[in-house]
């Protein structure tokens, strides 16, 4: 059961990363740990932020 749930989470993370959305929990954990004094984006803000950035020319182009 536990393995199945982990697999689901892994697939979910993979699917989100495929469309350019990194793991939100990892982001929050990182901010809390390393920058406890700074504000953390809500999931909605985080989503809009990464969505805008995916095609802003900073990343690699899409493949053929």
């Amino acid at each position: 059961m536990r393995e199945a749930y982990d697999l689901y989470l892994g697939l979910r993370r993979a699917a989100r990363l495929m469309v350019g959305v990194p793991d939100y929990d990892t982001y929050v954990a990182h901010r809390r740990l390393n920058h406890p004094e700074e504000p953390v984006m809500s999931y909605e803000e985080f989503f809009r932020f990464v969505q805008d950035r995916r095609f802003d020319g900073s990343g690699p182009p899409r493949c053929c």
């Binding site: 990363l17 793991d23 493949c63």
Partner: peptide
């Protein structure tokens, strides 16, 4: 926590494959 994140190799494989497959 955003661009530079150590990522599980299978998750990253999926990301990389989706990016190269066209």
């Amino acid at each position: 926590g955003l661009d530079y994140v150590p990522t599980d190799k299978y998750v990253l494989f999926g990301h990389h494959f989706a990016a190269i497959a066209g």
